[in-house]
Every structure is written in structure tokens, then in C-alpha cells.
Design a protein around this nucleic acid. Structure first.
Lengths: 219, 219
DNA sequence: CAAATTTGTTAGAATGATCTAACTTATTAC
DNA sequence: GTAATAAGTTAGATCATTCTAACAAATTTG
């Protein structure tokens, strides 16, 4: 059984391996805020337990076993976030820290019960998909708002970043998942985007914000 | 801040210090299932952080700071058990292990929210008192069923042991908190007690069981 | 392509939590 | 009140996780 520390490494590898499924030691160290030698030695030990494939000077790759383990931790994290929001009245900006801790609880029934009580949700409060209990995660292909064209109408469906600060920014603009946005214009100079949505006839969103907002194009 | 391990030592000291407030190293080691040298060295380090008072060859005593910290951990444990039973549909025999893990979560709002949702409960599912958010615990003076006399009518109000096995035994006899028991007789030979209660006109309880059942005498 | 930079590795040390073996102090029993 | 037993301590080792310093490999840049 993986320790909490090992679980955090697996989760980081899972979240950092987009596409190739390969993760550099430096990215891993960065993501976990540990030194490179620390990440390096931990990766070696994860390899001994068959969680990852690793060769000197090569990027790290999760084994299928490692992928599944990681996905199940992500599942616990996201189910927890959903539970905190839907069943305990927390705001979406408050749940990340707690979920980071609860995801390491070993108690299958506890999470199964959450899942049932929530009606087997497939996305978390930030629109991220929840892997199923086999560790399979459904792929969504959302578009970042930053690449939308004027006159498009889109629905806000997920976020690529769920930091407290970003979520508080969205709260301040009354932007929540599901909102329909009309793209008014796009500023070539700084890539900022002007949108309109209920009660907000004109809101300017910086590139930094708009590339973190994932939308479904409606028309 | 105390580590999870330190928290477990504080909790053990709290639970083991009845009356004098003094705990032997061997009892502590036993309670935590670690060796005596381990308990000894941990106690020394707890002393450095002012959680306990300790002198060579003397029993360990929690400082006021240590007592409060321990009580707050017990609070988190018992609130969690209550939440699992009342809000998530778990049986009272299933909650201990999970609560042992969740009690180490650092998230005041999470436990405050549980407390609110439960209507500020004062006892947990096993009848044990829940310390308040200042770490103060109300004292109850319950009588063990083992010291009751024939013909007394009593109400089952708490347990001195909450092991899964014991709770499953109680389930099998349909014994739950609140049940009214009439003491029929007591066997001088083995100290077993015969009681009657709704749907159970005659049930024999061994001394081992009856001394773990805490009751309030009704008449 | 050689120099500079970034990335990755090894070595060695520190900390927290644990153990066993050996020894000492305290308590209990006769 | 000594001898036996129990309780407590010290010393020394191990394991997981982390670090810094120093070095090596790979990549980028002029």
C-alpha cells in the first residue's frame, strides 16, 4: 500500500502526464515543491514497487498499476470536493485543501457512500471529470474561452485551474459553471476577451483568465 | 503543530489518564502497540513541546495544553463518528476505523460544519461525551450494568468499549443505546446477569459484557 | 559545434518514528 | 529484606523522507 507521500507523487505524475504520459523529474519536483534529488530518489523507490517506469536521465512514466492507483486517489479527491460542496454547504473555493487531506483516507465504504449520496457524479465542482471506481476517466474535449471567436455563444463547463484565488476571482464576477457567455470581442493587443452574460452586459477577461475557462460552444 | 503520531500519543494519554491523570510508559506503549523504548523517546519529545510533564521513572502527565489538544482530537473523532452514523448511514460498529483517520484532518471548518449539521451533539454513537470546541468534556456518572441489582430497571446509555466485535455482539442481541432493561437475576457463580427488554424476555449477559454496558438507573 | 544553461544524479547528512539488545531502577513476593 | 519480576532507560540500528553541495549529462544558444 502506498504511503500518503507516495500517493502524492503518483497523483502529481498523473496530473502532469498529459499526452505523452511522460514527466520530467524537474516538473515533478516543481509540482510537489521538493528538491530534485528528493523527487529523483522517490521515483527510484516508486519504481521498486512497480508504480512507475524509470531510467536514468529519462522522463518518468506511470505503469498501468500506477495510473490506476493515481486515478483512484483523484477520484477520492474529486468525490470529496463534490460532497463538501453539495452535502456540506462549502463554496467551491474552500474545498481543495480539505480534499487534499481526505483523499488519503483508506476507507472504501466511506467514498462509496459519498458517491451514492451524490448520485454517482461524473464531474467535480470545478468541472473536472471524476474517474470511476476502476480508475477510468472519461475524456472531455473542451475549448478554452481564450480561443473563442466574437459572436460565439458558449457555456462555461470547467476550469483548468482551481486555486482559491482564481475561484474567488470568478465568484467576484459571478461566474459559475453552467453560465452562458456571449463573446463580444477580443483585444488583439493583450488577448483579453469581452463577454456578456446575465446581469453582466460587459465584462473584460484577461488572457490569463480566459485560457483557464473551458467552455462548450453552443452556436 | 502536532504530527499525526504525536496526536495519537496525546489521545492515548488522554484516554488512559483516568482519575490521577498519570499514565505509565508501559500502559502507553501497550495502548499504542509500540515498544517501551519508542514510547519513552516519544514522551521525551512531547515534553520538549510542552505537551506533557515527565521525569525519569515517573508516570507521564498531560499539561493543560496537552489536555486541550487531546480533547480536541477526541472531539474530532466523536463528531466524525456521529456524522458517519447520522448523516451517512453507517452502523455504529463501522465508524471507528474511519474516524481514527479523519480525526487527524486539519480543517476547523470541516468539523464545525459537521457539528452544526448534527445540531451540536454532546454524545457520540456509543454514548461517549463529545468535548466542546474549547476541549471541555462534561462528566457523566454512569453505572455499569454489572453492578446493578435484580429488579432494577435501567436504561442503556453508553459503552466502555466500542470495538467492532463488541458492537456486533450487541447488534446480534438488538441492544442499542436507549433500550430499557429490567434486571431479572444475577448468577453468583460467574457474575452473569439476566435481563429482559422489548422482544427479549430473557437474555443472559456475561460479566465481560455487563461491565462494559453503562446504564442510568430508572427505578 | 563549443559554450552556457538547464536538467538530472550521487554523496552525505538530518529528522521523525520505529525497533532489539542490554542494562538499571522500582516493585512484588516470599 | 533479599530475590525475582516488572517497568523503565540507554545505546545503537533501520527506514522513509527530506535537504544541500558537488558533479555529470543533456539541451539550448550564439
Amino acid at each position: 500500500m502506498a504511503s500518503s507521500t507516495e500517493e502524492n507523487y503518483l497523483k502529481a505524475l498523473y496530473n502532469l502526464s498529459n499526452g505523452q504520459g511522460e514527466v520530467n523529474i524537474s516538473d515533478l519536483a516543481n509540482g510537489l515543491k521538493v528538491s530534485m534529488p528528493t523527487a529523483n530518489s522517490m521515483v527510484k523507490s516508486l519504481q521498486k514497487s512497480d508504480w512507475v517506469i524509470y531510467e536514468k536521465y529519462k522522463p518518468v512514466i506511470l505503469t498501468p498499476k500506477g495510473q490506476k492507483e493515481a486515478a483512484l486517489i483523484v477520484r477520492k479527491h474529486r468525490l470529496t470536493e463534490m460532497f463538501l460542496v453539495k452535502k456540506m454547504g462549502f463554496g467551491w473555493e474552500e474545498v481543495h485543501e480539505v480534499a487534499e487531506q481526505i483523499e488519503h483516507i483508506h476507507a472504501p465504504k466511506f467514498f462509496e457512500r459519498m458517491d451514492e449520496m451524490l448520485g454517482h457524479p461524473t464531474i467535480d465542482p470545478h468541472g473536472s471529470p471524476i474517474p470511476d471506481n476502476q480508475g477510468r476517466m472519461q475524456e472531455f474535449s473542451y475549448t478554452p474561452l481564450s480561443s473563442c471567436k466574437p459572436n460565439q455563444t458558449v457555456q462555461l463547463t470547467a476550469l483548468t485551474n482551481s486555486s482559491t484565488e482564481f475561484l474567488e476571482f470568478l465568484n467576484s464576477r459571478k461566474l459559475s459553471l453552467g453560465v452562458h457567455l456571449k463573446v463580444i470581442s477580443r483585444e488583439a493587443y493583450d488577448q483579453s476577451i469581452v463577454v456578456s452574460y446575465p446581469d453582466h452586459p460587459m465584462e473584460t477577461l484577461s488572457e490569463k483568465v480566459s485560457e483557464r475557462l473551458l467552455v462548450r460552444v453552443l452556436e
